[in-house]
């Protein structure tokens, strides 16, 4: 269950699951929806596979990903999605002065 929570905690992985809700997709098609590198996407796919939230099948040379959510996991995905949308809306409604400032680096330090 911990693996499921870990998988659903990331917005990119949640977006992957939302995309797979419409239809099974290849790894390449999924990766095209995100502005991140392929190794990063592979890591996301690995987390989703480990949590048993997606099913992987090879068709010829293409790797097809399919949704594999139980009813409770499906409900949890919907709940987390709705909750994060509300949280984002509340955050954007806050005045800029009340929002936490991003951490700034001092001169001479490296990230």
């Amino acid at each position: 269950m911990n693996a499921v929570f870990k998988a659903l905690s990331d917005p990119t992985r949640r977006h992957v699951l939302e995309l797979l809700r419409d239809r099974p997709m290849s790894a390449g098609d999924l990766a095209d929806h995100f502005p991140v590198s392929k190794p990063t996407m592979s890591a996301h796919f690995a987390v989703l596979r480990e949590a048993d939230l997606v099913d992987v099948q090879k068709l010829g040379k293409t790797v097809i990903y399919r949704l594999k959510l139980s009813v409770l996991e499906d409900a949890l995905l919907g709940f987390v999605g709705a909750f994060s949308a509300v949280a984002d809306a509340a955050k954007s409604a806050q005045p800029k002065s009340a929002q936490p400032k991003p951490a700034t680096l001092k001169k001479g330090t490296t990230p």
């Binding site: 048993d52 099913d55 099948q57 399919r66 594999k68 959510l69 139980s70 009813v71 409770l72 499906d74």
Partner: peptide, 12 residues
């Protein structure tokens, strides 16, 4: 039982 029903997808 129904909770796990959607997970029982086979190969296609």
């Amino acid at each position: 039982y129904a909770n796990f029903l959607p997970k029982s997808i086979g190969k296609f």
